[in-house]
Design a binder for these strands. Structure first.
Lengths: 190, 190, 190, 190
DNA sequence: GATGAATGAGTGTTCATTCAT
DNA sequence: CATGAATGAACACTCATTCAT
């Protein structure tokens, strides 16, 4: 079950994401994913224990990448608002450039597999960000609310705006992105 | 002939929503839904043309109820912020009380069936609300942004906060709800 | 199970023949036939005991009409060859004008229902013709072979020639029909 | 990997032919055919794309064998009548010895699948025969009629005579076969 | 007499997974 | 390591027929 050829594992991740986006979670069968990745269905079972393992691993893989992308250029010593701005822009850029990954996460979160993903593992990659937010709250720059509420107004609107399925009208021009950020910041700031 | 039993159609709607919540969109098969509704799978096809018809109809059914719930007590003559407050509280109340319906809509929107639902039909029930928002923009109370962005900061956070799956910590106490509303309003207001 | 409205029975016969021709024996379901006839599936069961009864009755109905058509203008006192000519032309005309009925008989004969049709009932309507042929054999005009062989060279070629599915090229012009008859007669005559 | 078992494909062909003969085209379901062949229904889909592919392939398989059987001992240099005699006897022998195959072809031709078989592929295997017939026409031995009419009087009577379902009385004795051939030849010869 | 509602059994087909090579 | 063959269980859906009105 463990691996030699990392390219095949990578190909399976990509094929999974691509297929889930194209034909949906329900129709993405193991054999279709394997074919899309250019391997035999039985080969897939060398790299992953079963379908569930494949889907959950793909989820982890994306989340790790997302966390990294959001921390791009992260500098703890800068003022809270600046860090926040950076992180938000990073998140938005990622969402626009990696729509397939974003949509996969969305579908995964609403699937019966969601419960199988370990929330703690995920939260780890976002730890630096939560730390900054706590600092913002202490410094009375940000409203004193739970992390869930922060995320609800900071990140979830991004999910919607970046998804052309949900938002026919929204164009990610520099001006619009700035306005969107301003709204997010207005929601959070004291 | 036997007369058509509206209770069965209703039972099928409810079973669909319940099952999608319990086991997810992908695993909700026609036969499972039929069994949950207490009818034979073939009976389902008397009330709906096929699975797609069942899922889309269920979506319409929920959306209509949601639109109605949000407009509860709606009074066009009141100030924009008051109307907005009412609608937001209505939406939040609906989301908390009808979590299954809310989650169904969420999953439906992220499924390949989403494209089959007529957006125009849906938008109609929300028309009074969009009218008020436009008034708010004209009166320079609300930021001059597209309807999509309004929704992204006004409604989507509700989706997250009301979903205990997403938000382990958030408790819908009166205080928390007011804070959440304040955040939404801060995002939108000029 | 017995009838009042002969029009409905007739409509069911016609719908059966039409559907079997259009979509084949296998796909011609009771409900489709009923719908094509403009009645409810359950109404069909007032006129016929079950699907088998409907199909066999339709077969009888057609065979009776075919027998009648072939005997059109039949005159026992005329010479054998003339009668034979008349009957053959009648048969050919029927086959061309009633292709659907012809094809239904063909499909029925090759279906599992075939065994259920009583051969004796069918043979009765062809009795006058067999009598003439026996006379022809006695008068040493026709080869002394079994009735099956007569039919094989007299009637079955008609089946093929009249079916455009089998015979792309054959055009039923007066000349071609006469040639075909000549071939049939050459086969039979001494 | 397990190696593909040609015996299974063959078993499926045979089961298809056998079942279509026993219970008819209409009732021959994929699962019944698979069971008769001793494989799982899903295994069938490894060897054939779908039911249509199975049925059409079976048709091709039979037609190829039939063409070969008819050409057994074929010698272009012999006189037209002798070749014709040989081919006709070959065809008759095949029809008697392979009644199931013959009946399958019959039923297939009258099914909605008929249109899916490529007529050109089929005609190829009969090419040598059509060549001889054309020679017979040029030499004024055979009537100058279309190939369809030749087939109608040469081959189709065989279909009927060899099928005991259609012909209770006809016994394939040497004498009867010769008489039948004589009738076919009388029909064709000038 | 006539009908739409209702259903268990069946349709063709795909599924996730294991097996043998 | 890699794979195509193999399958029991499930899929969405239709069937012939009966039931209640």
């Amino acid at each position: 079950m463990r691996t030699r050829d990392d390219k095949k594992q990578e190909a399976l991740f990509l094929a999974t994401i691509k297929l889930v986006n194209e034909i949906g979670f329900a129709s993405s069968s193991v054999s279709k994913i394997a074919k899309a990745a250019g391997v035999s269905p039985s080969t897939l079972y060398i790299y992953f224990k079963n379908k569930e393992d494949l889907l959950v691993s793909t989820y982890y893989e994306i989340k790790a990448g997302m966390g990294q992308a959001m921390l791009n250029g992260f500098d703890d010593s800068r003022p809270v608002r600046d860090i926040f701005h950076l992180v938000w822009r990073n998140a938005f850029a990622y969402a626009v450039e990696n729509q397939d990954e974003f949509r996969y996460v969305e579908q995964f979160s609403n699937s019966p597999y969601a419960g199988l993903a370990d929330a703690v593992i995920i939260k780890e990659s976002f730890e630096p960000i939560t730390r900054v937010i706590r600092r913002g709250i202490e410094q009375k720059i940000i409203k004193d609310v739970s992390m869930d509420m922060i995320a609800a107004f900071m990140l979830h609107p991004i999910k919607v705006l970046a998804n052309p399925n949900h938002c026919g009208q929204f164009e990610p021009t520099e001006e619009n992105i700035n306005t969107a950020f301003q709204m997010a910041w207005d929601a959070l700031k004291l």
